[in-house]
Amino acid sequence: MAIEVKTQNLEMVKSLRQVPQEEHYVPGHRTCQGCGPALVYKLVSKATGGNAIFLGPTGCMYVANTSYLCAPFAYPWMHTQITNGGAVASGIEAAYQVLIRKGKYKGELPSIVVMAGDGGSIDIGLQAMSSMMYRGHDALFVMYDNESYANTGIQVSPATPYGANTTFTPPGKNVPEGRVLFPKDAPQLVIGGHPAVHYVATASVAYPVDLINKVRKGLNYKGPSFVHLHAPCPKGWLFPAQKTIEVAKLAIQTGMWVNYTWENGEYTYDHTPKEYKPVKEYMKGQYRFNHLSDAHYAKMQAFIDARLKAPGKPIAIPVLGPREQ
């Protein structure tokens, strides 16, 4: 006997006027001035509304938010280990399904959201995230990407870009560029290996309406969804706090970040610039890249160019503009 599970149907917003004024991630937290991940939290919380359960694997968005026995979350929230955000979400979702089946819970299934950093999503938290996606739990996994293990003092993670100076990849005589590897492709990891997933999207704090809608769309889907959100971190990337949005926009204009949606196998692209700017413009604004030479910038540009036009790769076809050498 199948019992119908009532789920929420969250409406899309068309403009800033339609974004609710009510805050669910309230002022009063210890994140740095201008923190991109904090802005992600605010926007995702606005997207879910009040009927949500949030899970916070260890990372900045746990530690800097919940200090000294106080927390800024106006909904049920729970800390999970950095390794097991996906597993805890799976358990909560499964428990709700049982309560609904036994008739002990009559309401709508709340939005179950994991807010994990890049480490908690695709590195140390990978197995639990992947298992949640694989088993098909009705929950949303948000990867807020500040491109490092930020909370413990900006250590390298698989999302850290080539050439970045982190506390584990300091530039020196032997390794002048600092970070030598290019980043892992998080959304492709989820899309490629998890048949239960129907919705994966990337968004940026620079485009908040788009971000809110993508989160809502992910929540409306039955089953697991994954959103990868670009969240500049002034403390770790070493740029002035007021530039968080500027940096996020520049990432899109240079092809460092691409906003897209993958829905049942179909790709759509958002905010594709008419002409990509040289990636050096983006890197020059951040002190973590300050030690790089022109040869290093060229290597990064070659990587971006190849990624943007790799045949069969689900990335926007670039309109190549004149680039400086």
């Binding site: 309230v26 002022p27 009063g28 200090s67 026995l69 106080c70 927390a71 106006a74 909904y75 049920p76």
Partner: peptide, 14 residues
Amino acid sequence: CLPAPVKEQPGMIT
């Protein structure tokens, strides 16, 4: 277990 804040978190004035 902590009570959830309503509009602001006065425990962390910034």
